[in-house]
Amino acid sequence: MVLRPHGGEKVRLMVVGRKRLPDAERHERHWGFVEAIADSAKDLEKGLRAQSYGTRTRGERTQPAARPAGEGVYAVTLEDGQMHLSFALELPAKPGEVQKAFRIAPEASYALSIKNPEKGKPVNAGLREEDEADYPRRLQEEFRGRRFAREDVRLLDFEGAEFILIGARSNPEAEYGLDLDTHDEDYQHAEVIRRLRMVKSRHPIKPLFEGRWA
């Protein structure tokens, strides 16, 4: 998923484990990490295109281009000392088969905690040490010796930052008094898709409106 702050240019490309968002109603817990940070959304688009690569046993392979499956608005808030990532979907207007498969709900909130890279990790879990975030001392101190930080969203502004998302609420606007300020959208005016330069010739949009699993 791509997060772009309102009124800002810096964007975060975040990878969520299990290839779907946590179920908010069941309070599922998923691990993830920040794959890329860019100064503008369009700088991420090249990495989302189709790519070909060679393998030893299977020859030339192709990784298909990323396809948009949802767009909306989000907010990162502090609720009783715990960061929460809340969002509301704008596109598609009504979630379909693809959105349900990826747990892209009409509205949801997740508790968001960021892992301390100096506190180790379970065996065979998480990123390799050389791929973990390398925080400057002033930000490393935000962990205060804890395994996770729960208060400072700036810790997500580094490639390799690892995090935990825990499903919290399915109606954050009512629960937390948020106004996520959604608008009726269509593909031609979808802000993030436009800023990412996700043209239909490179990034098929059927999953956004009428995706079906084969």
Rank of each mutant, 00 (worst) to 15 (best):
M1P: 02
V2Y: 06
R4E: 09
H6G: 06
V16T: 07
G17H: 09
R18G: 00
R18W: 11
R20H: 13
P22L: 04
D23L: 11
R26Q: 13
E28W: 14
R29M: 02
W31M: 05
A38G: 12
D39K: 14
S40M: 05
A41C: 10
K42T: 07
D43K: 15
E45F: 06
Y53K: 01
G54A: 07
G54K: 10
G59P: 01
R61M: 02
T62L: 12
Q63V: 06
P64K: 14
P64A: 12
P64V: 11
A65Y: 11
R67S: 11
A69I: 15
A69E: 04
G72K: 03
V73R: 15
Y74F: 07
A75V: 06
T77P: 06
D80S: 14
G81F: 09
H84E: 06
L85V: 04
A88P: 02
P92N: 02
P92Q: 00
A93G: 15
G96I: 03
V98H: 04
K100Q: 15
K100N: 10
A101W: 12
F102W: 15
F102D: 06
I104Q: 01
I104R: 12
P106T: 00
S109W: 12
L112S: 03
I114G: 03
K115P: 02
K115E: 01
K115L: 12
K115T: 05
P117V: 04
E118H: 13
V123G: 04
R128L: 14
E129T: 13
D131G: 04
D131H: 15
A133P: 05
Y135Q: 08
L139S: 02
F143S: 00
R144S: 05
R144N: 03
G145A: 13
R146N: 09
R146L: 11
R146H: 10
R146S: 09
R147H: 07
R147K: 13
F148N: 04
F148T: 01
E151S: 14
V153C: 02
R154M: 08
L155Q: 00
D157S: 09
F158G: 02
F158V: 05
E159A: 13
G160I: 07
A161L: 05
E162K: 09
G167M: 07
S170M: 14
P172M: 12
E173N: 06
E175L: 08
G177Q: 15
L180V: 01
T182G: 01
T182D: 03
D184F: 07
D186N: 14
Q188T: 10
H189L: 09
E191H: 11
V192Y: 12
L196V: 05
L196C: 08
L196F: 10
L196G: 03
R197D: 06
V199C: 04
K200F: 02
K200E: 11
K200T: 05
S201D: 14
R202V: 09
H203Y: 13
H203C: 04
P204I: 12
I205S: 10
K206L: 09
K206Y: 13
E210A: 14
G211K: 06
W213T: 07
A214E: 15
